[in-house]
């Protein structure tokens, strides 16, 4: 769509969208949010960019092909289960550790976050795959 307002807005809104989607992903464990919602938001950013600049430009912003993102997401989500295997626990048991960081205080880090990141990537991948293919038509 050839609109200078939309294009300018897309350029500045895109990073904000993406940053916000990561925040939503990270805070999901304690407050509304999570990988699915975050992924949809991030995908929304790319869709927005697609409308403003076209599929080719949006694809370049994505850095990798959408279907690569799907595969990567599945791999990350599945990979989060490896740790439980080496700890001799049932498949996909959440593993946690508490980090004492100088700025953020006590930080709970766990494999469910890795899993959620996988969900995040799959959702972005699937949505952009569908939207890009439709928009290219």
């Amino acid at each position: 769509m050839d609109s200078i307002i939309l294009r300018t807005a897309a350029r500045y809104l895109m990073p904000i969208f993406l940053l916000f989607s990561v925040i939503i992903l990270l805070r999901g464990h304690n407050a509304p949010g999570g990988g699915f919602i975050g992924g949809l938001l991030a995908a929304g950013a790319f869709v927005f960019y697609t409308i403003a600049y076209g599929v080719a430009a949006a694809g370049r912003k994505l850095l990798v092909a959408p279907y690569t993102l799907i595969a990567l997401g599945l791999l990350v989500a599945f990979g989060s289960s490896i740790l439980s295997f080496f700890n001799d626990q049932p498949f996909m048991t959440g593993e946690w550790s508490v980090l004492n960081t100088p700025w953020l205080g006590k930080l709970h880090i766990g494999t469910p976050l890795v899993f959620d990141a996988g969900v995040y990537l799959v959702v972005i991948g699937v949505t952009t795959t569908i939207v890009f293919s439709l928009a290219e038509e």
């Binding site: 407050a31 509304p32 949010g33 999570g34 996909m92 959440g94 899993f115 959620d116 969900v119 959702v123």
Partner: peptide, 29 residues
Amino acid sequence: HGRNIVNVILVDFRALDTLGEITVLAVAG
């Protein structure tokens, strides 16, 4: 370690279901 029960169910208690769901999503995509 999470206060958002919905998310905890999705990524921890029922993570295997979610893994299945995102796989279906991937296949659909």
